[in-house]
């Protein structure tokens, strides 16, 4: 399951996922499949076992186990999958946060909640939405750092993996991470 191929070492923008993936449409398809799988996994965890963990890293790993051998992902390396999954996981969590009837923020429209009694314990949801918005801003000025944050935070990539993904040194990653984290944190403060 590891290393289906060495990913390229040139720098990547947050839109580009490497030479393994042919075009936009394929990317979208991969993303869609991953997203749906993560949603499904998350939902199935909810229902079946109250003690099971909802750790996104675990979910991503499980999704990879399921999807790795299916046709759309034959040409994808594990690293690239994690990258896609990170983006998908972000989407999943943000939508879940929105569903909780969290605060309005900017132009985002809050969707009608599915569940009735969900007004308690919303800080996590609020935080996530705030992060999402801030991350969008960061992406405007430094796509690479936004990708980095997304991959590390939502996808659970470690420093080495992130460095490989983005084609930079680990020292650069650490440095950029520190700055991005600090900036995002202060952006998120109400």
């Amino acid at each position: 399951m590891e290393s289906r191929g060495t990913p390229p070492t040139h720098g990547l923008t947050s839109d580009e996922l490497g030479t393994m993936v042919a075009d936009r449409r394929t990317l979208d398809h991969l993303f869609s499949v991953t997203y749906e799988e993560l949603r499904r996994l998350a939902a199935s965890v909810r229902r079946d076992d109250p003690n099971a963990s909802l750790s996104p890293t675990a979910l991503v790993n499980e999704a990879w186990l399921k999807l790795a051998s299916s046709p759309p992902f034959m040409m994808t390396s594990r690293l690239h999958f994690k990258r896609i999954a990170a983006r998908a996981m972000r989407q999943v969590l943000i939508e879940a946060a929105r569903r909780r009837g969290a605060l309005k923020r900017g132009p985002d429209v809050v969707q009608v909640t599915f569940d009735e009694a969900l007004q308690k314990g919303n800080s996590g949801a609020d935080d996530l939405l705030a992060l999402d918005a801030a991350l969008e801003q960061l992406a405007q000025v430094s796509p690479r750092q936004a990708t980095m944050v997304e991959s590390r935070f939502f996808g659970g990539l470690d420093v080495a993996e992130t460095a490989e993904l983005l084609g930079v040194s680990e020292a650069t990653i650490l440095r950029d991470w520190r700055a991005a984290k600090a900036w995002l944190a202060q952006e998120m403060r109400p």
Binding site: A42, V45, R46, S53, L54, S55, P56, T57, A58, L59, V92, L93, A96, A97, R100, G121, S123, G124, A125, D127, L128, F153, F154, G156
Partner: peptide
């Protein structure tokens, strides 16, 4: 992030 996921996915 797991902690957050717990909260939102619930």
């Amino acid at each position: 992030v797991a902690y957050l996921a717990e909260q939102v996915l619930g």
